[in-house]
Design a protein around this nucleic acid. Structure first.
Lengths: 344, 344
DNA sequence: TGTTAGCACTCTAAATGCCCGAGTGCTAAT
DNA sequence: ATTAGCACTCGGGCATTTAGAGTGCTAACA
């Protein structure tokens, strides 16, 4: 579809724009990278590329800028991995090491690294409920009718909910029940917890308690998993340093979107298969970040999907570098987590 | 010190500037509020006020603007409480009601209300460790040498730490120990927990365990309270809408400061007595927010200090409204918490 | 003696005009 | 097919102007 020369010029232009954030024209290309074509030839090619929708002009006599379609083509066909220096690789690998016991800290540190190395905003979706298993469950009464339900997973993560007991329900019965559940449900993946509760345990409970239905209802409510509680950020304000976001009005909707965890979750929602996904501009679910690109990648334990890491930056993003970095980071993270939790 | 007329003009000027964010001069004052003095007279008075340090000019022929000292004088001597409409009061009181069981949600909701009504950034320091008591403590083993220590307070708050057991320490012994501690320490205020651990319990433990020293050390580490884990924000980006922060460079250090929990905690650190405190511009601990004012107020349970709420805005802040609002909010919150946890 | 009118001056912000540079499209020559 | 040449366009930078709001100071006034 594209000639060799068009491809070359397109790539040169995109790379230059990613670096400089300035529209770039035929003369500059001819000068800056001593290509063997004259400005006029380049002009013709650029005009063709624009007609095909890969480039845009910011005004009638300006240089060209990649269009959204252009970026899409770039990442789909022209993305060559960036090289990281040995030092960088070493630093990253060392940072994602057995430095922290708590999974939360590891997750946060991962986010920190991503934002530090990219200068964009990074987001990490904490280890998903999907593959974490119940280690221990306990209920602690606070008062006659309120209690805290605590769930500890095999990854050391602690969930807790304050719940209100149905009126007239004996606290001791509830405690007894939870003890039973604790025995029975240990090792159950969290996402199966509600089902397990409903089916497998029903019979056991019936023997012990008459009010089991109300209790199950209550527990069902409490066991609802809220992924929004497990989002880690870093470099939230990095976007402000990008030249295309130098005026407040451009940046305000983006920052606001980042403050809203539901929106963020929507943006990162796993889109099917694992691996690296790139959403450019308006390809994203949310209108607010139509001038941004989101790159997501997933990490795993022993091959099982555990969570997602993401980087948000301008559409003019250093795609090669970010992609390479994310591969390295997710691999390191997966390795660490697998080593630590595979058989826990 | 100030004449009646100076006082009046000063107050008019500050109020106008708070509203409009524009430097204001003698003629405008004479026009806008039909005062009975001529611009020339007002000019003279303003010159005097400037000489005394209450006002400043942005350039040699500009109108006047309150200085930091001016704001200080304003809040110390001229602050008249704003009137909230019955609707507003009702809305706020209703919002801080028994809507949520979980203390975290109540706290977050409080922050939301504050930022919503002020259009500034609000911060709430969660119920402090100082007056919350241990309800239940438990250790759950994750693997041979890692475990989660869980602490539940009488306010329904759950703290958890992942800890690494000293090598060669028997997990069952640790569990036994924690059970004992659980019995003995129930009702101890969290801030006394480390002491209690050290003194009162020592003897009991010696009888049960030989390795008690290493265990105590481990628990001591784990029981360290990290106030930075209990900060709730709302309206982080509101500052961006203020005219004085329309350029990125002004706003970046502020947003960055808000992302750093240590800095935030430093800014809100309780300054002695309860009640409302106002820190203006450079009075604040952190250089980064020298163009902002921070208003803090505390809430309590049965008179005992529990936490702090704060609002951060430009020095040109609507002090009367914010102060009134914060009084209302902290009172409502104290009331709710007292009702709920007083005798728990 | 406190207040006011008048005046010359200052500074900012917005509008205006001008030019330069980088770019374009088109045509004709190579 | 490529390139040189040319007329044209647009944005950004720069100086200039103008209007508006303000000031300080002095002299006149009640």
């Amino acid at each position: 579809m594209l000639t060799e020369r068009q491809l070359f010029l397109f790539k040169v232009l995109v790379n230059d724009y990613i670096r400089s954030a300035e529209p770039i024209g035929s003369r500059t290309i001819a000068k800056r990278y001593d290509v063997k074509y004259s400005p006029a030839t380049i002009r013709n090619e650029l005009a063709d590329l624009e007609e095909m929708g890969f480039l845009e002009k910011t005004h009638s006599s300006s240089g060209r800028v990649p269009s959204q379609k252009g970026y899409r083509y770039y990442v789909d066909h022209l993305l060559s991995p960036a090289l990281l220096s040995k030092d960088e690789i070493l630093n990253i690998k060392r940072a994602i090491q057995d430095k922290y016991y708590e999974l939360e800290k590891v997750t946060q540190e991962t986010a920190n690294i991503l934002s530090e190395f990219t200068h964009y905003t990074s987001i990490v979706l904490g280890p998903e409920v999907l593959t974490t298993k119940l280690k221990h469950m306990q209920i602690v009464m606070l008062s006659r009718e309120t209690a805290v339900l605590i769930i500890i997973t095999n990854t050391g993560h602690v969930e807790n909910r304050t719940i209100k007991l149905p009126e007239g329900l004996d606290a001791r019965k509830v405690e007894m029940l939870v003890n039973i559940l604790n025995d029975r449900l240990q090792g159950t993946p969290l996402f199966k917890l509600k089902n397990a509760l409903d089916s497998e345990i029903k019979n056991v409970l019936r023997q012990h308690l008459s009010e089991y239905e109300r209790i199950i209802e209550m527990l069902n409510d409490a066991l609802e998993y809220h992924p929004v509680d497990h989002i880690y950020f870093s470099g939230k304000t990095n976007i402000l340093s990008q030249p295309e976001f130098k005026d407040i009005d451009k940046v305000l909707p983006i920052l606001n979107a980042l403050e809203n965890k539901d929106i963020v979750y929507e943006l990162l929602r796993p889109s099917g298969e694992d691996g690296i996904h790139i959403k450019i501009g308006e390809e994203n679910a949310m209108r607010e970040i139509k001038d941004c690109s989101v790159i997501t990648a997933s990490y795993s334990i022993g091959g099982e999907h555990m969570g997602t890491v993401a980087v948000i930056g301008p559409t003019r993003m250093a795609y090669p570098k970010v992609v390479t970095l994310m591969e390295l980071v997710t691999n390191s993270l997966s390795e660490l987590l697998t080593k630590r939790y595979q058989d826990a």
